[in-house]
Simulated assay, not measured.
Amino acid sequence: MQLEEQINRIKRRMDVARKQAKADLVIRNAKLVNVFLKSVQPRDVAVADGIVAGVYPAGEGPEAEREVDAKGKYLIPGLIDAHTHVEMAYVSAVPFAEGVLPWGTTTVILDPHDSSNVMGNRGVELLAREFLKTPLKVVLMTPPCVPSAPAFEDAGFEVTLDSLIESRNIPLIKGIAETMDFTRVLSQEEEMMKILAYGRENGLLFDGHAPEVRGLDAQAYFGTGPIRTDHESVTVDEMYEKYEMGVHVVIRRGSLAEPASAGELLRRLEGADTSRLLLATDGCINVSDMVHKGHMNYALRQIVAEGVDPMTAVQMATINVARAHHIDHRVGAVAPGYEADLVLVNDLKDFETVQVF
């Protein structure tokens, strides 16, 4: 987009915000979930050029080319999957996007591990270019551990520091995916130390993968600096310990039964800041469930059923993920200046989608 066109769009949004110009879309009479205040408010939401231009008391939004009456349904931000793998659904990028968008998943933090495992950077690039053809927002994380366990598998590619640096030129690559071979980290294997040092030097966020790594080993693993998330804890005690270290603890839900209760963890954290709790599928939703039960809204339904406060649950699937991955200036909330990824749901229990914008 040319600078002049961007300037004109900004000016237009400002005019819409002041009700001096028509919006493209106004959603009226919604129960807006405010992820900053953890509150529900009756609101109109105005959109111009795909961006939220303004939020108003119900009935007070500007004129618009198109109006949608929410009829008191809940309006939540587009859902963000904090960690997933498209390959685990056994579909390519386009059908994956077609499968998750109708359920309100509008952004995914994607680890293309298996594409790299088979075809290296070329496979990752092919996947990225297919995703560019979809409306799904994709934050692609380049895998650092291919093969995942060198002593036990053969792979079509081996990630080195040089290949990782090269992969950062692939479209959509924003960070480094899960450092799943934690034994290479803890043994200070030379190439892994180079990758971690490069990440630390360049301010890159690494996803973690450290099941049952606790105590001094956990401090050593997360003490590397760039590894800031973990989605592999197997007990509430392990999650709590990692959260105490400042780790973004990712709770995984999908088609598989998980051993640690999200509700029990939240009870342990009562009174604490929960902004470092994230929600993800980790690709662990089979195609049948994706079609019939949902995607991130299905994950929300599960943790609310476990006793997680619905407002906290929505934060875990929106603004918390956006903050962790430094995209909270664009997505994660329904507020002026945020991209208009908006989801109407019937309630904050089952999260059945009514409409996705």
Score class of each variant (00 low, 15 high):
residue 223 G to C: 10
residue 68 V to W: 13
residue 1 M to H: 11
residue 341 D to I: 06
residue 155 A to S: 15
residue 31 K to S: 13
residue 162 D to S: 13
residue 293 K to S: 10
residue 232 E to F: 06
residue 14 M to H: 09
residue 206 F to I: 01
residue 335 A to W: 13
residue 133 K to P: 00
residue 242 K to V: 01
residue 84 T to C: 15
residue 239 M to N: 03
residue 222 F to C: 04
residue 264 E to D: 14
residue 26 V to W: 09
residue 183 T to E: 09
residue 344 L to K: 08
residue 332 G to H: 10
residue 23 A to P: 03
residue 177 A to E: 04
residue 2 Q to F: 07
residue 350 D to I: 01
residue 66 R to A: 12
residue 182 F to L: 04
residue 189 E to Y: 14
residue 83 H to D: 04
residue 114 D to R: 12
residue 316 M to R: 07
residue 1 M to G: 13
residue 85 H to G: 04
residue 127 L to T: 02
residue 276 R to L: 06
residue 170 I to L: 02
residue 109 I to W: 00
residue 183 T to M: 12
residue 225 G to Y: 10
residue 238 E to M: 05
residue 180 M to H: 03
residue 297 N to E: 04
residue 168 R to W: 12
residue 268 R to D: 03
residue 314 V to N: 01
residue 35 V to I: 04
residue 352 E to C: 01
residue 355 Q to P: 00
residue 275 S to V: 01
residue 123 G to Q: 09
residue 219 Q to Y: 09
residue 130 E to V: 02
residue 188 Q to K: 15
residue 35 V to K: 07
residue 290 M to C: 06
residue 347 D to F: 09
residue 127 L to F: 06
residue 175 G to Q: 10
residue 215 G to D: 05
residue 188 Q to E: 14
residue 87 E to Y: 14
residue 250 V to F: 09
residue 179 T to M: 15
residue 237 D to K: 12
residue 66 R to F: 00
residue 193 M to E: 15
residue 321 V to A: 11
residue 272 A to F: 14
residue 245 M to D: 03
residue 156 G to R: 10
residue 285 I to Q: 08
residue 76 I to R: 08
residue 183 T to Y: 02
residue 175 G to L: 07
residue 30 A to Q: 04
residue 164 L to E: 04
residue 50 G to K: 05
residue 157 F to T: 00
residue 30 A to W: 09
residue 44 D to G: 08
residue 117 N to E: 05
residue 45 V to H: 04
residue 162 D to H: 06
residue 172 L to F: 08
residue 288 S to G: 02
residue 341 D to T: 05
residue 12 R to K: 14
residue 245 M to A: 03
residue 276 R to D: 02
residue 215 G to S: 07
residue 22 K to G: 01
residue 66 R to K: 15
residue 351 F to T: 03
residue 87 E to T: 04
residue 168 R to I: 00
residue 101 L to D: 02
residue 348 L to H: 09
residue 87 E to R: 12
residue 193 M to R: 14
residue 157 F to C: 01
residue 178 E to Q: 09
residue 40 V to P: 00
residue 336 P to Q: 10
residue 2 Q to T: 10
residue 268 R to T: 06
